[in-house]
Design a protein around this nucleic acid. Sequence first.
DNA 1: GCATTCGCTACAAAACTTGTAGTGCTACCC
DNA 2: GGGTAGCACTACAAGTTTTGTAGCGAATGC
Lengths: 104, 104
Amino acid sequence: MSNSTMGRCGEDALKLVADYWVLRIVEELNRAGEPLRFCNLQRLLDGVSPVTLTARLRALDDRALVARTEGSAGKASVSYELTDRGRAVLPVIQAISDFATSSP
Amino acid sequence: MSNSTMGRCGEDALKLVADYWVLRIVEELNRAGEPLRFCNLQRLLDGVSPVTLTARLRALDDRALVARTEGSAGKASVSYELTDRGRAVLPVIQAISDFATSSP
DNA sequence: GCATTCGCTACAAAACTTGTAGTGCTACCC
DNA sequence: GGGTAGCACTACAAGTTTTGTAGCGAATGC
């Protein structure tokens, strides 16, 4: 680890996870408990712009936090679901939730 | 973790905390263990632009996560330090750190 | 066939960040 | 007391990101 001190939690992880949409996506995918489609996610996330959603999903897929699977039908049925590694960020969301309810 | 009771973790908290600079600031303030000055923070945070740093510190101060105190000398000595409420976000940073070291 | 839905991409406008300068103030040195 | 330096910002232009709206090709429904 090139950083001088271990005190900082991984830069990469921080840059990935310290993002509103990334956390919302993980939250909704977890809540659903089943694969969701692009437009499902879009609706659940108060209509994020498709550009942003695409970018975030790609980032999450690249790092294997979500799995993208194309149905047999081809382009018209793609779904996203959390991987084990994706579920590893749930504690972060839980921590934020705890913080939120701690002293409003 | 129950998904239905969690609902979405507080929107406000999420919007505040799901931010790279906010988390870095809290991290450094905690690490220092003592009040830091604006320029100290700026140096510790790889030279964030003063505009961004000012904005984040103001947001954190508004929500009482950090306390801003002007020294007796007036404008030339302002310092920032974590409040108890500010320390309440440390678990979030810890969770991210855990995630980062979990499966690289 | 025709319309609608899906999973995006294209494009311009708005919002945010960055980098560089500069302001007003205080502290220090000679 | 003058000169220099540091602090805590603010001002501004330039670059990047996000949003909003439109649209496209493929598939699904009637």
